[in-house]
C-alpha cells in the first residue's frame, strides 16, 4: 500500500506581533521589580558620583535631621546617612548577585548529578540535609571569628546553606525529566550521559532555577543585613545597610532617620526582587500562565 503522507499544517498565520506594551501590561510585577532593581543598580554603580564620602566624620553635624544639605540626615558621628545608604546598595547587590550565582551554579551541578546518577544520590542528599541544618548566621559568625571579616567570607558563609535548597529543587526537576520517555529514547539511540544531561535535562531545569535564584538573591541580601547588624558581616569600614542600621539602633529614639532609610531601601530591594521572581514564575510556568 502506498504511504499517504499527512498534510503538513499550514505555516503559522502571521501572528500578531504583540507589542512591548502588551507584554508590559501582562507582566506588571516583573516590570515594576525590574525598574526598581535597575534604578538600584545605577545608584550602586554611580555611588561615588551621587554621594559624598560615606566615612567622612563631621562631629559638628552630629544627629542632624534630614534636610536639604543631608537628605537622609546624619548619624552620631556626623556622617551623611544618604551617602552611606547609597554606598551600602553596592554591598547588598554584590552579596545578592554573588550568592545567587554561586549557589545556583553549585546547586545545579550537584543537583543534576544527584538526579541522574542515583547511586550517589543517597549519600549526597544526606550531606545536603546536614548542610541545610547549618544556620547561615551562625556559620558566618564562626567563619569570621576564624578569619578576618571580609565581603568574601560573608558571601561564602551565606552561599553554603543556600546550596542545598537549589540542589533539592534541581534534583526533583531532574528526577521528573529523567522519567520522561524522550530520555529513554536518547539512551536507546546511543546518546552519551554527558550529552543527555546537558542537552536534554539541563534546559528543562532553567525555568524553576531562575525563579529560585531570585529568591536566593533576596534571602542573601536579608541575611547579609542581619549579619552586619550583629557585627558579623561586612567590616565596619565598609558601609552596608545592615551595619548602618546596627549603629543607628542605639539612637533610634532621637534619630529614627538613621535606621529608617537603610531599612526602607532594604525592604524595597527585597520586595523588587521577589516581584521579579513571582512574575518570572508566572511567566515561565505554563500551568499558571494559562490562567492569566
Amino acid at each position: 500500500m502506498a504511504i499517504v503522507a499527512e498534510p503538513l499544517p499550514a505555516p503559522a498565520s502571521t501572528r500578531q506581533q504583540s507589542g512591548t506594551m502588551r507584554w508590559v501590561r501582562r507582566h506588571k510585577t516583573i516590570v515594576v521589580g525590574l525598574v526598581i532593581l535597575a534604578a538600584l543598580f545605577i545608584v550602586a554603580v554611580a555611588a561615588p558620583w551621587l554621594a559624598g564620602d560615606p566615612l567622612q566624620f563631621e562631629p559638628t553635624n552630629r544627629l542632624k535631621k534630614p534636610s536639604g544639605e543631608f537628605w537622609f540626615g546624619t548619624d552620631q558621628f556626623g556622617r551623611d546617612v544618604y551617602s552611606r545608604v547609597v554606598h551600602g546598595a553596592r554591598i547588598s547587590l554584590i552579596v545578592g548577585l554573588c550568592v545567587a550565582a554561586l549557589a545556583t551554579f553549585l546547586g545545579l551541578v550537584i543537583g543534576v548529578l544527584c538526579g541522574y546518577y542515583r547511586r550517589i544520590d543517597g549519600i549526597v542528599m544526606r550531606f545536603m540535609d546536614g548542610m541545610m541544618s547549618i544556620p547561615a548566621i551562625l556559620l558566618a559568625i564562626a567563619l569570621i571569628t576564624l578569619m578576618k571579616a571580609s565581603l568574601f567570607i560573608v558571601i561564602v558563609a551565606i552561599t553554603i546553606p543556600e546550596i542545598p535548597r537549589v540542589v533539592r529543587l534541581v534534583r526533583s526537576v531532574v528526577l521528573s525529566v529523567r522519567a520522561r520517555p524522550f530520555i529513554d529514547a536518547a539512551i536507546a539511540s546511543g546518546t552519551r550521559n554527558s550529552v543527555i544531561m546537558i542537552r536534554h535535562i539541563l534546559p528543562n531545569t532553567a525555568a524553576p532555577l531562575i525563579v529560585q535564584a531570585t529568591y536566593v538573591c533576596a534571602s542573601a541580601i536579608l541575611t547579609e543585613a542581619g549579619l552586619s547588624f550583629l557585627g558579623a558581616g561586612t567590616p565596619p569600614e565598609i558601609p552596608s545597610w545592615g551595619n548602618v542600621i546596627s549603629l543607628g539602633r542605639t539612637f533610634f529614639q532621637i534619630a529614627p532617620w538613621i535606621i529608617f532609610f537603610p531599612g526602607l531601601c532594604l525592604a524595597i530591594t527585597v520586595l523588587a526582587i521577589n516581584l521579579v521572581g513571582d512574575g518570572l514564575r508566572d511567566m515561565l510556568d505554563p500551568r499558571i500562565a494559562r490562567r492569566m
Partner: peptide, 10 residues
C-alpha cells in the same frame, strides 16, 4: 516508542 508526544524532546 509508544507515545510520540513524550518520546520527543519538546
Amino acid at each position: 516508542f509508544q507515545d510520540p508526544y513524550s518520546s520527543l524532546n519538546p
